[in-house]
Design a protein around this nucleic acid. Structure first.
Lengths: 244, 244
DNA sequence: CGGGGTCTTGACGGTATTCAAAGGTCGTGG
DNA sequence: CCACGACCTTTGAATACCGTCAAGACCCCG
């Protein structure tokens, strides 16, 4: 079983020894989920989150019109399903896009953590804020940019996040995403995504399909993408750690 | 000066006496900002949030193409600008859509709060998660629904949120939003918003313009809107309050 | 009375959708 | 080892929704 990668937990504040131990205990017995497994359906009762060790998981919302919006693709290191903490029932469907390994962590345990370690609590808040920023950018992207730019933006996003998560090999992203899933992510149709990918290919920016996408010209891609946020690190206002 | 409304701070956990006192001290000296004031520009340094006492504030993201996405309209009781806690520079522009009254609260003070009162920290986290859920729904709305449904959805959202914030009078929303601002919220153009509002009017659902929108048939509106989330209340896993 | 901001309407064009069908690839079972 | 089927990609043609451009009306405020 692959270990849980800590990069998402240390991006705002370096982990203390004690914090590493806590995380290690939470991720001691992960489970496997084969591709296409639904970890949790929208509307189901939610009592825990998952910590994603390995594989890709999609978070999606279903609409009455039988359409579907993929809200986020999660990479190793991510926390899955934490939005549902504030809801009476799960707000999104979590489905394995590839074979997956993940640990379950009950809400109760998170509550304990909040009481025991204020600094870690604040760090977790920042991670959630980061997700919110990502959503804001995606909203602007879907609302105000062309299909071409959206696909370009997704590829760049997967490249940067994928590097941190260890699913990128040089300029190649090992992404299990089909064109239909990309369409659901970007608010497009599979047909149109296909055309845009073809165009990106013709323009020498991106090649590849389901399984592996290769970024041929990262700088060129970046030029057609509007957002390049810089995140805070160890902000001064964070509370002390429990064992500081 | 109007007092700060507490409904957004008590939605997940009832406030203790001590918590009320803390909030009162934070909101003791609010400031006025006339309509069109930019509270904070995207890219500026961010060292505090605002607590909104009265008025409407828009949070927007600007794109290179001179287009603009309004990410959220804030109502009284809301916390403004907390996403930028995780960023090196402010991620959105906060602009007063009407005359506004708001208190500034430094990030340091929030850090203190996290250390002093774990339950309140957790409640704040839940508020942020709630914003994230709202963003997820908006994403699905913009990505996967028609312009007509989006305008309908916005009106219903303003009605429910406006009731809690005290800006709704019967079925009338005192909203300073122009059609162009609605367009920026929904990823549309002012022209098309106009057409959809006209159609909603013809269908007997919504009337009014800039200043005051009247919902004629709330149930009818709700029928064409996909999301009706139920939020948690006093979840068992919340840590104890400091003075419990 | 003038002017900026907002709403309204029409004509036109383009981006993306819809519908439909064919070609590729991969894993599985006969 | 080949055949089949499931899944994914690719392409074309017709259509629809929404954007763009332009101009006029309305209204409140100075």
């Amino acid at each position: 079983m692959p270990p849980f990668p800590l990069h998402r937990f240390s991006e705002f504040s370096a982990l203390t020894l004690r914090q590493r131990e806590v995380l290690a205990s939470l991720t001691r017995s992960p489970r496997r989920y084969p591709r296409r497994t639904v970890l949790r359906q929208e509307g189901a009762t939610a009592s825990h989150v998952w910590l994603l060790h390995a594989g890709w998981v999609g978070s999606s919302i279903d609409l009455p019109s039988a359409k579907r919006q993929l809200v986020k693709v999660h990479l190793p290191g991510d926390v899955l399903g934490s939005t549902s903490m504030c809801l009476a029932a799960a707000g999104d469907t979590l489905a394995a896009l590839s074979d997956v390994v993940a640990s379950m962590v009950p809400f109760d345990t998170l509550g304990q953590l909040f009481a025991d370690d204020p600094r870690m609590a604040a760090s977790f808040l920042l991670s959630v804020q980061k997700e919110r920023v990502a959503l804001m950018h995606k909203l602007a992207e879907i609302g105000r940019t062309s299909a071409y730019e959206r696909v370009a933006g997704l590829m760049l996003d997967l490249l940067t996040r994928g590097r941190a998560a260890g699913v990128v090999d040089g300029n190649a992203i090992d992404a299990p995403l089909t064109q239909e899933q990309i369409a659901d992510l970007l608010g497009l149709t599979n047909v149109h995504v296909n055309r845009m990918l073809r165009k990106l290919n013709d323009d020498g920016l991106v090649s590849g399909t389901h399984g592996r996408y290769v970024i041929a010209d990262e700088a060129g891609l970046a030029a057609s993408v509007p957002f390049h946020p810089t995140f805070a690190h160890e902000p001064a206002w964070l509370p002390e750690a429990a064992d500081a």
